[in-house]
Simulated scan of single mutants.
Amino acid sequence: MSTLPPELANLPAPSLVETISYEARLAVLRTRLVEIFTAAGIDYDVQDLETDPAQILLQVSAYQDVLLRQRVNEAIKSWFLAYATGGDLDALAQFYDVVRLASETDDALRRRVVLAIQGRSTGGTKARYRSIALAADVRVADVAVYTVGRDPTINVAVFSTSASGVADAGLVAKVDAALQAPDARMVNDKIVVASAAQQAIAISANIWLLPQAPESTLAAVEAYLRAAWSRDMLLGRDLTRSWLIAQLQRDGVHRVELVAPAADIAIPFNQAGALGAVSLVLQGREY
């Protein structure tokens, strides 16, 4: 499922995109066929007969018409950043001097294109620095660019795609090199790059399975939690107990008792929660 940047999420669909209905197209063709027979003085009264060859041909024609119109819709959508995918998105991105990184997803590339557009000013804008940092390596999941008080130092917090979210020294150095490049950094800017995920958060829960659930359910639940963490827990998102319980309440799980964390954890906008040790303890089976 595609996740659009906020700048694109609420845009209306292009007016050129047509709403297509097979039934509506078939009705139009049937009406035209009756008109042709009537004009020829022929009383055509078997249009509701499924075995009528004319009706079979109309159905085939209507289906082909729908396929053609859908292909036109898809071609139109490929012109727009919010809808383009694959090679079409690569072509749009190239117009803004943005090139897809190796194994980069459409969502990530689309976000970088938006930032590239916003950051076209050479005045060291936040969007420009974010765009450069995200383009430094495909392992950069998110970036926060900020200053503290009156200190002009530009801080860049890097959140990694790794399971923990912690950006290792190599990744931090790579982002730093991209931002410190002569054609990237403004002359008077002092840029400091660090990992956004600083402290691992341990997760502990007691789990009761349904009677028919296999033992492997616990491993599947942990895998789902880790995947959801990588997808949702980006910069600035608070870690709530309700979110954790929702991720643990998977198929085969009867009940979840979350032990740790004991309370919701507020995450500053320039940090992200790193996933620490996960302990899921089987307490038995209930129904």
Rank of each mutant, 00 (worst) to 15 (best):
V143P: 02
R110S: 09
P152D: 04
Y44N: 01
K126H: 10
Y129T: 02
R111G: 06
Q70T: 02
L57T: 00
R69S: 13
V34I: 12
L109I: 06
D45M: 13
Q70R: 06
T161K: 11
I56M: 05
V143Y: 02
L67H: 03
A108E: 11
A82K: 13
I117Y: 15
D106S: 11
T161Y: 00
Q47F: 14
R112V: 04
F80I: 07
A84C: 06
Q70K: 04
T147A: 15
I132F: 12
D142A: 13
R110F: 10
L115R: 00
R139H: 12
S61V: 13
V156R: 02
V66A: 11
P53F: 10
R71F: 03
V140D: 03
A141L: 09
W79Y: 14
D97G: 06
V60A: 13
V138A: 12
D52G: 04
I76L: 15
A84W: 01
A39M: 10
Y83R: 03
F95C: 14
L115A: 07
V46E: 09
D151V: 09
T105V: 10
Q47V: 14
L81G: 01
R120Q: 14
K77C: 15
A54P: 05
A102Y: 12
D151W: 07
Q55S: 02
F37M: 04
D45T: 15
L115E: 07
A133G: 07
G124I: 05
E74R: 09
A133H: 03
T122C: 08
L115M: 06
V99L: 09
T125V: 07
D90R: 04
D97K: 06
V99W: 08
N155P: 00
V158D: 12
S131F: 11
G119A: 12
A84V: 08
K126E: 15
Q118W: 10
V148Q: 05
D151T: 15
V156N: 02
L58M: 03
F80Q: 05
R111W: 08
A102T: 15
L58T: 02
E104S: 08
N155W: 07
W79R: 15
A144C: 08
D106Q: 10
I76P: 06
V148N: 11
P152A: 11
A40I: 05
D107K: 13
R130V: 02
E35P: 01
D52W: 01
Q70Y: 06
S78R: 14
A84Q: 07
D52P: 01
Q47P: 03
V143D: 04
E104R: 10
G41T: 01
F37R: 03
R130G: 05
I36H: 01
A75T: 12
Y146T: 02
G124A: 07
V145F: 06
R150N: 11
L68S: 15
A102N: 15
I154S: 02
A144P: 00
D48G: 10
R110D: 02
Y83V: 00
G41I: 03
G149R: 12
V156M: 00
Y129I: 01
V46L: 12
K126M: 14
A84I: 01
A54F: 15
A102W: 07
V145G: 02
A62M: 05
S78V: 10
V156T: 08
R150A: 15
T122M: 12
A84S: 10
F159P: 00
Q59V: 06
E74A: 14
G124M: 04
Q118G: 00
R110M: 04
F159H: 15
D97S: 08
A133Y: 01
R100S: 05
A84H: 07
F37D: 05
